[in-house]
Every structure is written in C-alpha cells, then in structure tokens.
Design a binder for these strands. Structure first.
Lengths: 230, 230
DNA sequence: CCGAATCCTTATTGATACTG
DNA sequence: CAGTATCAATAAGGATTCGG
C-alpha cells in the first residue's frame, strides 16, 4: 500500500513506512506476546489471509523488525521472533491499544474468548508486581475456562480447568469487561462482588486487580505524558 | 482500506480501525501542531491528493477525532481542529515518531526545510522548561532561515530573518541533524562548536538544547515504559 | 483562492485454491 | 505446516473540474 512510501523527511512518516501497512502492527503485537509459528499467527489474526501474512513477514524481516528462528529438535519448527528493534515498538503499541480501549463496547456473551483477552492483557502486564506472589487461578467467563498463573512478574495462561488452582472465579462477560476496561482502581472489588468465587478470596481479588492493573497504569502514564509531552 | 475493519475484539484493532488508514495518522499529527485549513493540510502533507484528504477528514469527523471550526470574521475561514479524543493520541504519536528517528539518515542539503523540522519538533516540546526564558533566535541552516521564540513553555516559529533576535545561529544540515537526533545530552554543545553564532552564546546554546530536548526525554520515557511495560 | 467532488489508472487487498 | 499463485474487489494516486 505504501509502495513508494510517504516521501517526507519526518520520523513519523518513516515509522509509518515501516509499520503503517494494514495488519502489520497487529502482527507485531502478536509477536510481542512471544515467538509464534506461521500457523499460530494465522490463527491469532482472524481474517488476515495467508498471502498477506507471508508478505508482511517478509517485509518485517527485511526491515529488521522480525527474525525467523528454528527451534532445536525435536520441536524443529520455525518461529517468528521480534528483534530488539521490533520490541522497541512496545511503548507505542501499548499506548495505542490503551487509547482504543475507550471505544470498546461490552461484548456479546460468546463473542469473545477469555483466553485471547487475557493473553493480550499479559503483554501490558508489567513488573510492578509483588515478586512473592505465586497464584494459580481458574477463570471462567460464561463457561469459557482458562488457568492463569501469576508468579512474581510473569503471567502464564493455560487452557482448560485446573485441579490445583488456589481460587476459582466464575463471572459473566459484562463483569469481566468492566474489570478490564475500568480506570477505577476499585474495579476489581466490583468484579469480585459480581463473581462466584471458590477457594481463596484473597487470591481471587489479587488476580482481578492484576487484570485491571494495565489499564490503570497505562492511563496514569498517558496523563503524565500528555501533561509534559515528551 | 479498512473498510469493514479488522473484526477482532481487541483494543489495538479498534484503534487501527480508526486511525490505521494511510495518511490518517499524519493528518492527526499535523493537527496536533494546531488548527489548520484544508489548504494548509494539503501543503504540509506533500503527495496526499485532495480527494484523500477530504475523505480522511470526513472519517475523522465521523469518528469524533476532528471538528470543523469557523474562525470569527474577518478571517472567516474554516479550520480543522483535533477534539479532546484526538488529542489523546499525542503520547502514541510521539512514541511512534521517536521510534522512527533511529532509521533516519542525515538529509541532503536542501532536501529539508528547517521550518518543517522545527515545527514538528515543537510538538514534542513540552513544559519541562524554565518558565523565565524568553529567547528569540534566528536559525539558519544552509541558508534556510527561520526565527524561533521560546517563551517559557511555548515555542513559536516565524519565517524570514529577525532584526531583534538575541542570537543568530548558522549551521549546516548535517550538524542540525546531529543536534536533533542525538540521544546524547551534549549534542547541543557539539552543535554549537559546528555553528557560527552571532549574539548571545548562552541563548544559542539554550536553543540548541531545547531542540534536542524532545529526543532525550522521549528516549528516557521509552526506556522506563519498556522496563515496566504499562 | 478555498474546499471539495469526479473520473480514470494503477496498486493493494481479500478469498480461495494449490504445492513442496 | 508453511507458504505460492491466482484473480476479482477495493483503495490509493493523479489530474481535472466545479461551486462559493
């Protein structure tokens, strides 16, 4: 689309020449959540079309934002990884994703898979957390069930139900939406009221707080940046 | 381009549906530097084509990011203005523009108009400045001449030469590039060595520091954000 | 002159089929 | 699994025209 680019001597135009094409930034976003195979990307980017994915990956590699890596045997599959340069887009992507949050409507039940929402959340999840925490929570939203482990500053997700969870949270789509998108710092408490909790309530509350954290922090940072723009 | 959008329940995809089209973010960037008429935008966005500009402005208005305003007589012209929502993109735009800086090559002499470079710089210029400063400097880069006034936290630019300037800086394109893009905090001192200065050296140095400021601050913020990603 | 709307050509995309 | 190839549908680029 930007075949011969914006021909402007402007760093924003330069950036857009590199990542301004349709789908490109979404691919970068996906790769920020970890290395992925071609088919993983296809799956996580519904609607992209295999030719476009291939084309974008090629350009991203030429631009030095992405690299192909071959996993050691027995996996022996090739994955795409963001380079250091590509990782440099993290603040931008987070800031843009945060801005977009204000336009999101509560989803229809079933429209959304919790797993994807929490996965994306995990990108914005930072290091500002208690290093001693080690929580394993089963989260079920309108029947859609995943396991989330928070260990210090690392969040990992697994599918299906967990026998060893410290807490089980069951909640409806709307409440989940409220917890995640609300800039209020008591959104987690509110979500807890709406939820059915099994197991350690303390752990459950901490988990909901963690899921809300990115939004709160991002807003604070955005305000600060806006107040004294760079 | 994104006619029926990415159909993903994802705030980044939502953002891109609004500002992901070609030219759109550049238009927003322009408007961040102040209200502009249709023809001003055409001029500042070389290559856009009048039909596209019209189409983008229409979409941006529908999306609530831009509004049309009619200036009071005798100006009586209509200008486009960013709404509060549109202004919310400021941190994103600054972060993306900062990221792109690493790919910029020193321009050919004459390729670039100082005025445009400094104009864009003024967007990133923030409030972290000495409120007592009131400097008026004439800056000439390879013969291209503008006047810059810094008064507290406000930077204004005017064309042509100034009789009343406190200092006159004359420098080549390459040195100007170095001052602006260098993350080193002594870039300004370096630039001063390369320059011919007439008038108050203290004022000249402060001006070069100010032009370098955005880059330095932006990098510091990016590092911080990357370290504890939102 | 400003602020577009129209027409036409080229480039990019989206969807699907196909291959090593 | 990891892409290519094909092709119709769209969007962008460029020139010109039009109304106030």
């Amino acid at each position: 689309m930007a075949k011969h680019g914006y021909q402007q001597y402007c760093s924003l135009a330069t950036s857009l020449d590199m990542i301004g094409d349709r789908w490109t930034l979404l691919i970068v976003f996906e790769l920020m959540m970890g290395a992925q195979r071609y088919s993983d990307l296809l799956e996580h980017l519904p609607g992209i079309g295999t030719n476009l994915l291939a084309a974008r990956l090629k350009r991203l590699q030429e631009a030095g934002l992405v690299e192909k890596e071959t996993l050691p045997p027995p996996a022996a599959s090739t994955v795409y990884v963001l380079t250091e340069t590509g990782q440099g887009l993290r603040p931008t992507v987070i800031s843009l994703a945060t801005w977009g949050m204000q336009f999101m409507e509560p989803p229809e039940p079933g429209e959304v898979f919790v797993r994807d929402v929490v996965r994306r959340r995990s990108l914005m999840f930072g290091t500002r957390c208690d290093p001693d925490v080690d929580d394993l929570v089963e989260l079920s939203v309108d029947g859609d069930r995943i396991g989330i482990r928070i260990r210090g500053d690392v969040m990992t997700i697994e599918d299906g139900s967990l026998k060893e969870a410290n807490a089980r949270i069951e909640l409806d789509t709307r409440s989940m939406f409220d917890v995640i998108t609300s800039p209020e710092k008591d959104a987690a408490e509110y979500g807890l009221e709406k939820a059915t909790v099994d197991g350690d309530h303390e752990v459950a509350l901490r988990m909901l707080r963690t899921l809300n954290l990115p939004r709160t922090i991002a807003l604070a940072q955005a305000r600060e940046t806006a107040a004294s723009p760079v």
